[in-house]
Design a protein around this nucleic acid. Structure first.
Lengths: 135, 135
DNA sequence: TACCGACAGTTCGTAATACAAACTAGATTA
DNA sequence: TAATCTAGTTTGTATTACGAACTGTCGGTA
């Protein structure tokens, strides 16, 4: 009865793999690891605390500490003390970090758009609506 | 003139993240790392040589050696010598590996299907066609 | 046959990733 | 105030990933 849509799950997995690959290529060109690039992109909108970051990136806090350490050591982010809570800090992009984050985000978007551009407009909006429903 | 489809690239990235998360959850439940689980799934269809695996998984051969080592140590795969080429080997699932690979593949598929099941059938086929065009 | 470049896979050294458990210090609640 | 919770770090370990150098085999060619 539950007629499984043959291949849709597989297609999603393949797509995820493709996206991951694009992201990896772009990161390498910016001399970043994919994880570092992802962190920068998440911070574009606004500075974020460590605990919130673990939710956004699906990482344990101990893993996150090291990731932030390394990116901070490169001068791309800083730990800004939170004056409401002296235990906490928010991770903010430096000027250099903002620049690199935008470059990375734009490159990823461009390459993905280059692929979707082949699709007819109707298909794009269908996919967009469906993907929004999925995540 | 290149009217960028606003948000489609972002939606793809979010989706990739979701899929990755599902895959990570399933892997952990099977006491595998995501990379190990991915390797097992690739081998379900047929045994594959190291060089071909580097293409399928987008890994350097030196990275692959270690990955296969660890999975072989767990008794999930074996290196089968290729009798046409004594340099080469094909990586094949053991009986235990077959079982685990199927369990993993099925669990991932189930969880992704559970998400897509909310979509109307027409949307599913649109998305399927579009995703096939993208990867 | 003997040589030589190409190829399959491994080894080695290094850096990054990721986790769990234990910990510090500031916040919150009883 | 004392007990408890929370934010983030530290420590130790296994895995992931890469590049460079290496071994052994294959294939072609002189």
């Amino acid at each position: 009865m539950t007629t499984t849509e043959l291949g849709l799950a597989e297609a999603l997995v393949r797509l995820a793999h493709t996206v991951q690959h694009v992201f990896g290529d772009v990161s390498r060109e910016q001399d970043l690891t994919p994880q570092q690039a992802q962190l920068l992109c998440v911070l574009i909108r606004e500075p974020v605390g460590m605990t919130e970051l673990t939710r956004l990136l699906h990482l344990e806090k101990s893993s996150l500490t090291g990731l932030v350490d390394r990116v901070e050591r490169r001068g791309l982010v800083t730990r800004v003390p939170d004056d409401r809570d002296r235990r906490a800090c928010r991770i903010a992009l430096t000027d250099e970090g903002v620049e690199l984050a935008h470059r990375t985000h734009e490159a990823v978007t461009n390459r993905l758009d280059a692929r979707t551009r082949r699709l007819p407009a109707a298909a794009r909006s269908h996919v967009l609506a469906a993907l929004d429903a999925l995540s």
